[in-house]
Nucleic acid binder design. Structure first.
Length: 424
RNA sequence: GGAGAGAUGUCCGAGUGGUCGAAGGAGACGGACUCGAAAUCCGUUGUACUGUUUUUACGGUACCGAGGGUUCGAAUCCCUCUCCCUCCGCCA
């Protein structure tokens, strides 16, 4: 959530930002509700003041008549307060739910655009893999090498689930360990997080657990959800606390399963492992001072690049355009790996994403630090993918396949794997 | 899962329905004493929201695990929930 105190003074900027992000939010209505809320709040507080004064007068001994009079007055006040409070409550609910939909401010360098096609490519590394044979996609490779079983998973669990088998199991574990080792060398505290989180944490991070378009599985009757990313549980880690300024930045890495409903996303770009209901991911998460977040955001991108360069996978980096930013993100960089089996001739496909969410999530989660003058301030929160295992597997299988149908393994993974090629 | 005990400020801890934002300690900060320090003494020491004010400041409301309720008035009484502790049972 943005700072609602700034709603009026920054109205023009906020309105422009909403337009750039291709969103439709009735700012005027929100401001009207804010005003109405403020009036009701003042009226309510005034009545409470009267109630407190009335009660205070009855502390001393009174004659019976006066006492009866004061009690009657108190009763009337009580009812008036109840009425006001009910009205205030109602306004507050609509006001807040609308205000929460206002997106974060946007970094001035972010390209303005509506769709992912408007994202700005800012870097490429390596060249798209060239083959002197016709390359297979990872679905074919997964089948021919007996590494991935979609059909059985569909029968057992439903569409977009999969069994990893044989070397693919070890590849998943190797990727996780490889990423965790790199993060540890960068000073991250390693964690394996819960795969379930409370709805209030989800909402604080900026996910909407409800509704048709929600990407979240909720667990009926518990107020909890399956997490779509460890960003949720890592952000929830310090929810509601005031952190020591000296301990910032706090850098955490979390390994978790990620569950996504992916309702209504079909088509060729969602075939195979690329878009699935469950996958494993190592996520980076940072709590820092407001002045540090831009630099740390770049550092997270560099770590992501280190990981993919170590895997020898060609990629490009994009600066995500305004229309493609999530509401909490102030700026977002994606790494798109070259995937030879994607599209007709191969295409880049997203494998990581790192966002600077500034104080947007911290405000909802109420995560602060204390300034030197004793005032508390919201921290800045950042997140980034170290490795989304399923997509990394897509990139490895497709880029390193050989003419004989085998797949070589990236050198950096060999110590973790114990083999350097998958062959049948 | 069953039985019992509990949750109060940074921490410990008191609190009879009105005099309680909350005793008393400890800690921290400021000051006195000291060459300096320790000890001692004096003082200050929560948060959020909100109103007036240029800031300073002053005022109001709320907050004693969370949410409801009773009452003119709740830290205090009642209900629900969460968490923690002890004992029993079960279990990877």
């Amino acid at each position: 959530m943005i700072d609602l105190k700034e709603l009026k003074e920054k109205r023009t900027i906020i309105g422009k930002n909403i337009k750039h992000r291709n969103m439709n939010i009735d700012l005027d209505e929100i401001i009207r509700l804010q005003h109405q809320r403020s009036e009701l709040l003042q009226e309510t507080e005034h009545l409470r003041k009267q109630r407190n004064e009335n009660a205070a007068m009855m502390k001393s001994k009174l004659d019976a008549d006066r006492r009866v009079l004061l009690i009657a007055e108190g009763k009337a006040l009580k009812e008036a307060i109840a009425v006001k409070e009910a009205a205030l409550n109602e306004i507050e609910i609509t006001y807040l739910s609308m205000a929460k939909s206002i997106p974060n401010y946007t970094h001035p360098e972010v390209p303005v655009g509506k769709l992912d096609a408007d994202n700005l490519q800012i870097k490429t590394w390596g060249n798209p893999t060239a083959f002197d044979f016709i390359p297979k996609d990872h679905v074919e490779l997964g089948q021919s090498l007996d590494l991935i079983d979609f059909d059985t998973a569909t029968r057992v669990s439903g569409a977009k689930f999969y069994y990893l088998k044989n070397e693919a199991v070890l590849l998943e574990l190797a990727l996780e360990r490889y990423a965790l080792d790199i993060l540890r060398s960068h000073g991250f505290t390693l964690t394996i997080t819960p795969d379930i989180a409370k709805e209030e944490i989800l909402e604080g991070i900026g996910f909407n657990p409800r509704g048709e378009e929600s990407n979240i599985y909720t667990i009926e009757g518990t107020g909890t959800c399956l997490v779509g990313t460890a960003e949720i549980t890592l952000g929830g880690y310090h929810a509601g606390s005031i952190l020591d300024k000296e301990q910032l930045p706090i850098k955490m890495a979390g390994l978790s399963h990620c569950f996504r409903r992916e309702a209504g996303s079909a088509g060729q770009f969602s075939k195979g492992l690329y878009r699935v209901h469950q996958f494993s991911k190592v996520e980076m998460f940072v709590y820092c001072l407001p002045g540090q977040s831009d630099i740390i955001h770049k550092e997270l991108l560099e770590i992501e690049e280190e990981i993919f360069q170590g895997l020898e996978i060609p990629y490009r980096v994009v600066d995500t355009c305004t229309g493609d930013l999530g509401a909490p993100a102030y700026r977002k960089f994606d790494i798109e790996a070259w995937m030879p089996g994607r599209g007709d001739q191969g295409e880049y496909g997203e494998v990581t994403s790192t966002s600077n969410c500034t104080d947007y999530q911290a405000r909802s989660l109420n995560i602060r630090y204390r300034e030197d003058d004793g005032k508390s301030q919201f921290v800045h929160l950042l997140n980034g993918t170290a490795v989304a295992v399923s997509r990394a597997i897509v990139a490895i299988l497709e880029n390193f396949q050989q003419q004989d149908g085998s797949v070589r393994m990236p050198k950096k993974l060999v110590p973790y794997l114990g083999f350097d090629r998958i062959i049948r």
